[in-house]
Simulated assay, not measured.
Amino acid sequence: MPRTRRDPVEVNLTPLIDVVFLLLIFFMVSTTFETRQALELELPESASGLAAEASPVTLVITAEGRYRLGERDLSAAALGDALAAEAEQAREHGLVVEADARARHADVVRALDQAGLQGIRQVRIATTEASSTQAETP
């Protein structure tokens, strides 16, 4: 009796790869990413402020006078160069300045001056909603 030749057994990995890609896409879509590091900022209050959409270019000014653009901590001297790198996107979408309520006025003016030198004309200053417990003055 002649021996029949068997074809080699192969495992089809295509369904397994499809499932792995579907899981990867599911986790990418369902995961929230925290892009901002927690800073202890106390934003000034505003009674007439309006909610605005988030801008991809946000400049943070701390109470100590330090600057942060994105994830980079900056000195006052490096602020101009850092804004120049983000100027195109800031001109298109605007710049949001998140200055601590205890920040010096000079630090905020320095940031606004550097933004003006880069041609950034749409600048918003972030505030918090005024609390209703304060007495209104006539």
Rank of each mutant, 00 (worst) to 15 (best):
R36K: 14
Y67Q: 04
E71T: 03
H93C: 10
L13G: 06
R72K: 04
R36W: 04
F27R: 15
A106M: 12
I17L: 08
R36G: 09
A130W: 07
R124A: 05
G119Y: 00
T133N: 10
G116F: 02
V20A: 07
G116D: 11
D113Y: 05
V9F: 09
A106Y: 15
A87P: 03
Q37G: 10
Q89W: 01
R91G: 01
V20F: 06
A103Y: 00
V96H: 04
F21Q: 08
Q89A: 12
T14L: 13
F27D: 14
E10V: 14
P138H: 15
R36S: 06
L13H: 12
G119F: 03
R121V: 04
E86W: 02
A54K: 03
V29R: 07
F33S: 10
L24Q: 13
A82L: 01
V19E: 11
S75F: 12
R36P: 00
E129Y: 11
V19R: 15
L16Y: 09
A87V: 05
D7A: 14
P15C: 02
L22G: 15
P138G: 12
S46V: 06
R68H: 13
G65V: 11
R68C: 02
P15Y: 06
I125H: 02
P138W: 13
A85W: 03
D73M: 07
I25P: 13
A111V: 02
R36I: 14
L16Q: 15
T58G: 00
D7K: 10
A51W: 07
R91Q: 03
L112S: 12
L22W: 10
A63M: 05
V109F: 11
V20D: 09
P8V: 08
V109H: 15
V123R: 00
R66A: 09
L24P: 00
R121H: 02
A90T: 03
T31W: 13
A111W: 00
S132I: 06
A99L: 09
L22I: 12
L22F: 13
G49I: 09
F27K: 04
E45S: 06
P56T: 06
V11H: 09
A82E: 04
L69Y: 10
T58D: 00
L39Q: 01
A126V: 02
R104G: 07
A101H: 10
L117S: 05
V19I: 08
H93V: 12
E129W: 08
